[in-house]
Design a binder for these strands. Structure first.
Lengths: 198, 198
DNA sequence: GCGTTTATCTTGCCAGTGTCAAGATTATTT
DNA sequence: AAATAATCTTGACACTGGCAAGATAAACGC
């Protein structure tokens, strides 16, 4: 926007913003760096210095997504009184709601191998979000426990259920749930999360 | 292979095979039609007549994947005696095992928007597989039921749990489970599936 | 048998992509 | 004020998928 300056000032965050916007209405699969650059009013090779490669941009974007995700979860936890509600329902709904609200970002974060998940920043952001979710639901930090006896299978099962529901809804499966209107759908999701399994 | 013939004979299925192979060791994200064509010993534009576009190929590949998926599930059902075992564990394990064995194909089928899921062939193949899974676990066809009271929330919950576990394992989350050796991991998955939730 | 039509595959081109190298421009430091 | 570093542009490269026009082979009608 600032055409007067040769140096943009904060190009890095500007590119991230535009990339996020571009992704959210065109899909992750067909993201074009050149398009994003044009949208930011900058040359097509301006990325290199800030992100290295396209993967660098997507990695940063995914990391940003995970901190946003973590915030959405903690917001839900703070909003709902811990005494009154079932935390699995509350946090699970927030988990799923985030997936539906930021569908493209969510699929970048989870259903793609485009970002570099070994990147320390991304790794830390994602772990933080997961830990927070598990802690909210179970009151303990179970992700770091390993060894055969140490795994909290209940926590894993709940996480899997919530995550599976989110992705199945996101990818257009579960049409009987998707065809419901907003309030009925929320109700249905609540019921699915609440049920005992068998 | 048959260099003597100008007309390949069964190029369509040959291209599908090579594409599947290429995907499985290079990933879905970076599939190149030209590379597949070269591998099949054919020109880069030979696709057009058989699949139309790249999406056509991926759609056919996904459809093939779903029938394969359905067969893996029914195989598991037939192998394990229905009386002895918990069907959720049996079918769930087969579901997850398929995901781990054909990881790239699985992510094409579920975690991508590259295929055209409105394609009748693909739609039918996927629905068939899902129906079979639900029927195996619950003995009834619940996917077609809709309306607020008609949804089988227990079946949905179990499906979500199994699918979530598959995708979380596939994308490298749940490290404490992934770090186990094969038999211990199977045991852990079994436990996660068996637990009641709360 | 032969000629025509149809299906299949190739060649050549196009606009578009991400990446790299070299240079221009501005900020920062010394 | 000079030197250095950071930032951005320009131009090229190899590669991608899609399209048009033509070559080749098969199938069909007679």
């Amino acid at each position: 926007m600032d055409a007067s300056t040769y140096h943009h000032g904060n190009l890095k965050s500007a590119l991230l913003e535009h990339a996020a916007a571009e992704i959210e209405d065109s899909g992750v699969e067909k993201l074009s760096l050149r398009q994003v650059a044009k949208r930011a009013g900058v040359s097509h090779a301006a990325f290199a210095h800030h992100f290295g490669s396209a993967q660098g941009l997507l990695t940063a974007l995914a990391a940003e997504g995970f901190t946003l995700f973590g915030k959405a979860l903690s917001d839900a936890r703070n909003r709902d009184c811990p005494q009154d509600v079932d935390q699995l329902e509350s946090s699970g709904l927030a988990y799923i709601q985030f997936a539906l609200d930021h569908s493209q970002l969510f699929s970048l974060m989870f259903s793609s191998k485009l970002p570099d998940f070994s990147d320390p920043t991304l790794d830390e952001a994602s772990m933080k979000a997961f830990q927070a979710f598990i802690a909210d639901v179970h009151g303990s930090n179970v992700l770091e426990v390993d060894g055969p006896g140490g795994i909290d299978t209940v926590a894993m099962g709940n996480w899997a259920k919530v995550h599976g529901l989110a992705t199945l809804l996101l990818t257009g499966r579960m049409r009987s749930v998707l065809s419901l209107d907003a309030t009925q759908r929320t109700q249905a999701i609540r019921q699915i999360l609440a049920n005992d399994g068998n």
